[in-house]
Design a protein around this nucleic acid. Structure first.
Lengths: 158, 158
DNA sequence: CACAAATGGTTTCAGTTGATACCAATATCG
DNA sequence: CGATATTGGTATCAACTGAAACCATTTGTG
């Protein structure tokens, strides 16, 4: 035999996608049903709770969402009175986003739930394994965002 | 401090989603540009190469795609002459799908590329780590598809 | 055997998504 | 300074997705 036959079940991109989708669906439907938040909206709230007053561009960078998604999430949250979008002092185009009191209150409600969900979903791993997993994912992410072109050249060579 | 403050960057569902999306985008755009295949289409080809003559329902089960996606992928591939959909002898509703010669040829072309891509993307992990990662993902997947209700009850209690 | 329920597949429809084009403001450079 | 390129953000449009309705067939079950 020249090449081992490629079992789809062993194919890492496939495995990663399936697992991630399962987790995402779980989490997304919980946010939606408990708090009426979409995932992008929740990410925005979470990141603003960590660092208030960011521009939409900065938020996009941190959360790896494209600016369209950020824009939509921001407007939706503004509409619900959860974030305020103030004019930036130094740049008339930019809006500095920050959580309103209601937004902070919501975050205080969501955050513990999110943690509980994380704990439940990953309860099948012991803490050391969870750390391991995070580390592996981080390495992959880093290698995909920096090593970029080299990687693909390698793959395209055949 | 009562609760540690939930850093989004440390939140596993988020990490998983980001990494998986990066990998998926990479892989999807390669399939598309090299072979004109969407991810569902590629999955279908891959699974038929492993086990020919499956029904669409069976394919959906194996690949965790819903039946609409399978249907669309199947018709598209049939249109390109890559799979044949024969009438099932025992059930007039069902179609048994199998790769045509062209389909097998395409698979023979795509499979090594897919493996090369996998190798390139995960070149930042040594083999033992890759195995570890697969194992962790498999555990999570299993716990989400079997432990189901218990998990959510746990998360909802708080 | 008739009739209800379940199953394989397709169609339809509404919601989500991201690429692209776009507008306004700012930065850069001759 | 004025032209040009960039950047923050929005709007538009086409593609993708999945839920639900649907049709045809098959499988109970009385």
């Amino acid at each position: 035999m020249t090449t081992p036959p490629l079992r789809l079940d062993d194919f890492l991109p496939y495995r990663l996608s399936v697992t991630s989708n399962l987790v995402s669906d779980r989490v997304a439907s919980a946010y939606r049903s408990l708090f009426g938040l979409s995932v992008p909206e929740w990410r925005l709230v979470a990141v603003l709770a960590e660092a208030d007053g960011l521009s939409q561009a900065a938020i996009g960078e941190r959360t790896r969402m494209d600016k369209v998604s950020v824009s939509r999430a921001a407007r939706a949250l503004e509409g619900r009175g959860l974030v305020a979008r103030l004019a930036d002092a130094h740049d008339a185009r930019a809006r500095a986003l920050s959580l309103t009191a209601a937004g902070r209150a919501l975050h205080a409600l969501v955050a513990p739930r999110a943690k509980a969900m994380e704990a439940a979903i990953f309860s099948c791993l012991d803490p050391a394994e969870a750390v391991q997993l995070k580390a592996l994912l981080a390495r992959i992410e880093a290698s995909l965002t920096t090593g970029d072109r080299d990687l693909m050249r390698q793959a395209d060579k055949k």
